[in-house]
Nucleic acid binder design. Structure first.
Length: 579
DNA sequence: TTTATGGGCGCC
DNA sequence: AGGGCGCCCATAAA
């Protein structure tokens, strides 16, 4: 009896819905369209009305507060509508993001694209993401994107899904994609609790005091001088590859590039200060005082997320660098007084996803337990954990040579279904065909000059072949990375509802809430007394995501969970899942 | 002056 | 001849 399962799935116009608050409640869809003059057209759900934009929060709140009538809000772009609602203290349970869902449907191989055509459909195809709330564009939004009829587009999308042979999976994908957009807006709204003074102390310890204007901090200044002295090159710019290659050449050193890993092989007294410069300069430029000024305010780091910003369906971050802020500065992310950060990550997400989507029972068996690679060793498939990792990653990335490539051959016999799936995806890509994730997201097509006449010189044929193979490696990885992103979306979609139900009153950031999502890792900011409850919800949501995506094929998704005050301490105090 | 591209590095 | 991103810089082109 899967109670959690039932509570997060419900039938909604033929699709699956992630995020219902109860069972057996009739679902309504309410479409919002913007009208000229700061007015909103509201259709569906038994109402048709015009409203002042300013009155919208009260209108929405009245329906969200009553689970019996809590509808699915259908709007052109979550990033346009939700931030002002959040600012007004309104939390939305579920939505349908027409822009994101249209992009999915447009590329989905199982969808008849003609069903998406109709009034204004060209406008919908051209829609880009709304500007991040923290950095609104100076120019007015494109008028063509302002006053579109949400109800017409909604009807088209519902019809396209219903007519598809993959209606159930696509419905789940669209619901998860939309829930992810809600989560993204909520995370930007709440922000990561950030201790500016800790961050500044870290910078000062490593770089010296903050420099004026465009000057370098003292430590970098001294390192530049040291590099120049040691090279005997007074005007050398350590950021310039030609300057560095020239200086190294004069010293009798010939290197193909100036990557840190290459320079480490070189024996020259300037290398050590140069590598130290590169590391500290990166910190100064990317996460230094300027970054603090721009992205941290009111003790919160508020990055901007772009759901499905990557073609595989992974999110990207187009402001603040949320998905790549270095380990070095994470110690400045500190929970509020009396609160904690609950940090959870999935070990070996993509290999587990591969086991599930290929229904490879041998790999799924190895995935039982906390360490999939160790499970492969226990299985007798490989000698060491490192071999297991090399072989599996090599299979997913398309390694053809080296140690990784050699491991792939041996593992193919032990895990035939899993390896056949990625190989088939690679061959399809090499033939120029699109591939799809388990829930039906389609890969971008090779497009362009793929079909051009091969009448060029031999070098063009070779270039074409390289391109063909590169696309094969892309499609090989796409199916796994993309399905992994779908699992993760289901995880956070369910999690945000669980956290909301966990209790507390008032705005979203007064309750346990998500503050960070990094592909296979989440950070929840929660009152310390609720830490154990949050950990339990994290695990139930992970188990639920596995059932949603892989149905009856069981795959373990064990979490590593840390309850910490500072994000920098996460992982040092890992607790075994379930305790 | 702005814009586009590629190297290099950070994250997954 | 190993997938996906963003961001910073230098450099070249416009």
């Amino acid at each position: 009896m899967s109670v959690q399962h039932a509570s997060i799935i419900r039938v909604d116009h033929g699709g699956l819905d992630v995020g219902a608050v109860g069972e057996g409640v009739p679902m309504t869809r309410v479409q919002l369209s913007r009208l000229p003059g700061e007015r909103v057209l509201i259709t569906g759900g038994g109402v048709e009305d015009q409203l002042d934009l300013a009155a919208l929060p009260a209108y929405v709140r009245a329906r969200e507060d009553d689970p019996a009538v809590a509808p699915r809000w259908v709007w052109d772009d979550t990033a346009r509508w939700y931030p002002p609602l959040l600012a007004a203290g309104v939390r939305v349970a579920r939505c349908h993001d027409l822009r994101l869902c249209r992009r999915v449907l447009r590329r989905a191989p199982a969808v008849d694209g003609r069903l998406l055509d109709g009034d204004e459909s060209a406008h919908w195809d051209r829609l880009g993401p709304a500007a991040a709330p923290a950095h609104p564009t100076l120019f007015a939004a494109d008028e063509t994107s302002e006053h579109l009829r949400a109800d017409l587009e909604d009807a088209r999308q519902l019809a396209a899904v219903a007519a598809s042979t993959e209606a159930t999976r696509l419905g789940l994908l669209l619901a998860a994609e939309s829930a992810g957009a809600l989560a993204a807006a909520e995370m930007t709204y709440a922000g990561v609790p950030w201790r500016t003074e800790l961050h500044e102390r870290l910078l000062t310890d490593l770089l010296g005091p903050r420099p004026l204007r465009d000057a370098l901090p003292p430590v970098l200044d001294e390192l530049v001088a040291e590099v120049r002295r040691t090279f005997g090159a007074p005007g050398l710019n350590p950021e310039s590859r030609t300057d560095l290659l020239d200086a190294l050449g004069r010293a009798g050193v010939d290197v193909p590039d100036i990557r840190a890993s290459t320079l480490r092989q070189v024996d020259h007294p300037a290398i050590e200060p140069l590598l130290r410069y590169k590391k500290l300069a990166h910190l100064f430029q990317t996460n230094g005082w300027t970054w603090l000024d721009e992205w941290v305010s009111g003790d919160r780091f508020r990055p901007s997320y772009q759901p499905a910003g990557s073609s595989t369906g992974r999110w990207s971050s187009n402001g603040g660098g949320a998905l790549s802020f270095p380990v070095q500065v994470r110690s400045a992310a500190v929970a509020d007084e009396g609160w904690v950060l609950v940090v959870a990550d999935v070990a070996q997400l993509e290999p587990r996803v591969l086991a599930g989507m290929s229904r490879d029972s041998a790999l799924a068996r190895a995935a039982q337990g906390a360490d999939l690679y160790q499970g492969m060793v226990a299985d007798g498939a490989v000698a060491t954990r490192q071999d297991a990792k090399l072989g599996l990653l090599g299979a997913m990335y398309g390694a053809t040579s080296g140690e990784s490539g050699r491991m792939v051959a041996g593992l193919t016999r032990r895990y035939p279904a899993a390896f056949a799936l990625v190989d088939e995806a690679a061959r399809a890509g090499e033939r120029g065909q699109v591939v799809r994730t388990l829930l039906g997201r389609g890969s971008p097509s090779l497009g362009g000059s793929w079909d051009e006449e091969p009448d060029g010189p031999p070098s063009d044929l070779q270039a074409l072949d390289r391109r063909r193979r590169a696309y094969g490696r892309f499609t090989r990885n796409f199916v796994v990375q993309g399905t992994g992103a779908e699992w993760a979306l289901c995880w956070i979609a369910d999690l945000r509802n669980r956290l909301w139900r966990l209790g507390g009153t008032g705005a979203i950031d007064r309750r346990p809430h998500l503050v960070l999502f990094l592909h296979d890792e989440v950070v929840v900011h929660a009152p310390a007394a609720l830490a154990d409850d949050v950990a339990a919800e994290l695990e139930q949501a992970a188990a639920g995501a596995g059932r949603l995506v892989f149905r009856d094929f069981a795959v373990d998704f064990p979490l590593s969970i840390s309850v910490v005050s500072s994000y920098g301490d996460a992982g040092k105090d890992k607790r075994k899942a379930g305790t």
